[in-house]
Design a protein around this nucleic acid. Structure first.
Lengths: 154, 154
DNA sequence: CGCACTTCGTCAACCTGGTTGTCGAAATAG
DNA sequence: CTATTTCGACAACCAGGTTGACGAAGTGCG
C-alpha cells in the first residue's frame, strides 16, 4: 500500500489528538472534568516541586505574562496555589494543590493505561519500534518545549 | 528501554510539529513565506474545485463566521478569490488562485520529500509499519475533521 | 556602602482565531 | 403565496497569546 506524504502528519496529529481526547474523557470520569489540554501542559510545567511564574513561563515556552494568566485559571480551578516566595520578595511561588496532585497522578495512570491499550492492539515490539522511530525523527528536528503548542499554529 | 505512557503523546506531537514546521520552512523558500499552518488547512478545505463559505466552514469543522474570517485572510494573501455564485445569489464562491494552486502543489511535493527523508532515516519497512500502526490507532478513535485543530486544545 | 544592572511579576493595549446571536436576502417546500 | 431554511454578513464577546512599560527587589562590583 503506497501512501501519500501528506498522510503522515495527519496520522500523527490524529493519533495525538485521539490520545489527548481520551485522556480528558477519562480524567473527567475521575473528577477532573474542567481541565483543558492547555491547562494540563501548564500543570505539568509547575511540577511536583512548584515553580515561580517566570519559571513556568520558561518551561512552557511562553511569556511570563501568558504564564500568569494560565496559572490564574489553574488557581481558579483549584489546581495550584500562589504564595509569595519567602526567599525572594519579587517572586510568586506556584505550587500544586492536593487536587492538582491527584490530577497529575490520574493523568500518569491514564497515560500508562492508554499505552497498554496500544500494546494490546499493536503488540509490544511494534509499539516500541514506533516509539523508537518517532524518537529518532523528533530528535532529528529538535522541536521546542511543546508547551506553546496552543499558539504555535497561529 | 521501558518508556512512560506520557512519552507517546509527546513523541506524536513533536513529530507532527517537526513535520509541519519543516513544511513551512520549505514553503517559505519556495515563495510562500506568509502562509501559516492554520491557513494551510483552510486552503486544503477550499479544494481544487472551490466551495462556498458555508461549505468551507463545514469542511474545517468551524462556524461559517470563522470560515469567513479565515477565507478573508487567505484572499488578502492572494491564495483564493471570492465571487458571487451565479447559481445562488446568497452564496459566495471561494476558488483557489494560481498562486494558491502553486502553494498546494508545492505542499504536496514537500510532504513527499519529507516522507522520503523519513524512509531514508528509518527504512521503508519501518515507516510503513509506523503508518500502518498509526492508522490502526487513529481509526480506533475516530478523530474529527482535524481542521479545527487550532481551537481544539482550548 | 552605593550604584548600575538584571530579574520578577504586573498592568495595559493589542492580535488572532474562535464563539454566539441577529439579521436581511435568497432559495425551497408545501 | 407563504412558511421555513440556508447563506453570509455584522456585532459583541472570549481565550490565549504577544509586546512594552513599569516599580520593586535581588545581584555584582568598584
Amino acid at each position: 500500500m503506497d501512501r501519500f506524504g501528506f498522510e503522515l502528519p495527519l496520522l500523527l496529529a490524529g493519533a495525538f489528538r485521539g490520545l489527548i481526547d481520551e485522556l480528558h474523557r477519562r480524567l473527567a470520569e475521575r473528577g477532573h472534568p474542567d481541565l483543558r489540554p492547555a491547562y494540563g501542559f501548564a500543570l505539568q510545567a509547575v511540577g511536583p516541586d512548584g515553580a515561580t511564574m517566570s519559571e513556568v513561563g520558561r518551561r512552557l515556552g511562553v511569556s511570563k505574562q501568558a504564564a500568569t494568566k494560565t496559572v490564574g485559571k489553574l488557581a481558579d480551578l483549584g489546581y495550584v496555589d500562589r504564595a509569595p516566595d519567602p526567599a525572594d520578595a519579587r517572586a510568586v511561588l506556584v505550587t500544586i494543590t492536593p487536587r492538582g496532585r491527584d490530577c497529575l497522578r490520574a493523568s500518569a495512570e491514564i497515560f500508562e493505561d492508554l499505552r497498554r491499550d496500544w500494546i494490546k492492539e499493536l503488540g509490544k515490539p511494534r509499539l516500541e519500534a514506533l516509539e523508537a522511530d518517532l524518537t529518532t525523527m523528533v530528535s532529528r528536528a529538535p522541536t521546542a518545549t511543546l508547551g506553546d503548542l496552543p499558539g504555535w499554529l497561529r
